[in-house]
Write a protein that binds this DNA or RNA. Structure first.
Lengths: 201, 201
DNA sequence: TCCAATTCGCCTTTTATTCGCTAGAATAGG
DNA sequence: CCTATTCTAGCGAATAAAAGGCGAATTGGA
């Protein structure tokens, strides 16, 4: 990966700062560390490095820069280059940003397991039989999240979760199926769905 | 994992307190330990750290915070235990089997990249806007496979691939859209779809 | 019931992003 | 070899969005 002298300095600063403090620097701190007087310059450097896939960051989030370790960047086994967007009838967007995607982006450091989906109860949600849902173990859920829930301790289902007065509504995403209403006490949440993985042969 | 200075302070406090006392602090104790006067602030910190996967907790339970050890957080991030199958209205098969699933199962040793899908041309295939398709780089495809194809060198699309006499038919999976017919010479296959990855927030 | 946890509305500070502008290096063509 | 174009690098100002904070009211578990 081509990198300029200045870019290497920026990258080195980020690495050192994070190692020293345990958290990433703000743009202000980067600027003073590199002798820059404008945050715009810092921003441009970060953007360029991100485009080259040398670091990850979250938009608009404070101190969200992660330097991508070089070994991990190369080990393409489970981290895929994200080459752009594709839309019906339109060219792929400028294939350049060396972003990547992997399961770790979805699961982070949470406790996650997978379940193979059978049946069509989430068809309208575009989750179909054979898909794997990635589920974070959790006892609770927020309004509208997709959850794995046990009703009366025995029936595990994949549904959207809603409160409705004293009852809980478990809403299948299939117009042909009816929601389940149950008192809060008899519903136990097993986890909530973070993502879906599908495989074609 | 990106973290702010204050968040690191909170995390450090939690780690130290738990190590010292053998149990986790109450919000009250966290507040006084960090010099905060509102429990709401404590709660916000805990919620943020939980969202970043750096600690576990049980809702509404006293002293239920667990700091996730960093080694465990980094480890196993790309291979998930496959706990069983889930079907509408039926219990999860209580599998403790050590089956797992990961991106590598889909990718194998092939050269694969990802594209973010925009638009609804594959809606009936349950691939929706925002999904990532995992694409194997390939010049050819077999009948009926989902491919990324360039027509006349400029239009990249996601379609099912069929031969039809001398022509190639690129079939969208959306009943409202019409197939594209083109001579074999003007269609170039960029790759074929091996899988789909979707993320919920 | 009691106490800790959670939610709510509101505020301030910190941080990231965008815009318009300048200037030097590297690169591609003619 | 010269020139047009693109890319890196930089500035300061204005704006937008998170992060961090408060006190009061509400909820939920034991």
């Amino acid at each position: 990966m081509a990198i300029t002298r200045r870019q290497k300095e920026v990258l080195d600063f980020l690495t050192a700062f994070t190692a020293r403090n345990g958290y990433s620097p703000s743009y202000e701190e980067i600027a003073s560390g590199l002798g820059l007087s404008s945050l715009a310059t810092v921003h441009k450097h970060i953007t360029n490095l991100h485009a080259k896939g040398l670091l990850q960051r979250a938009q608009n989030r404070s101190r969200s820069i992660d330097v991508v370790p070089q070994r991990a960047a190369r080990k393409a086994a489970d981290r895929l280059p994200l080459l752009g967007r594709i839309a019906a009838g339109k060219p792929v967007e400028a294939i350049q940003a060396a972003e990547t995607i992997s399961l770790s982006d979805i699961i982070g450091a949470r406790e996650v397991f997978a379940l193979e989906v059978q049946g069509d109860s989430m068809r309208d949600e575009h989750i179909i039989s054979g898909d794997y849902v990635l589920v974070e173990r959790s006892r609770t859920a927020r309004e509208g999240e997709i959850v794995v829930a046990l009703v009366d301790g025995s029936d595990a289902t994949l549904k959207r979760f809603y409160h409705e007065g004293n009852l809980i509504r478990l809403q299948p995403s299939n117009s042909e199926m009816k929601p389940i209403y149950a008192p809060a006490g008899s519903v136990s949440i097993q986890g909530k769905v973070l993502g879906v993985l599908r495989r074609y042969n």
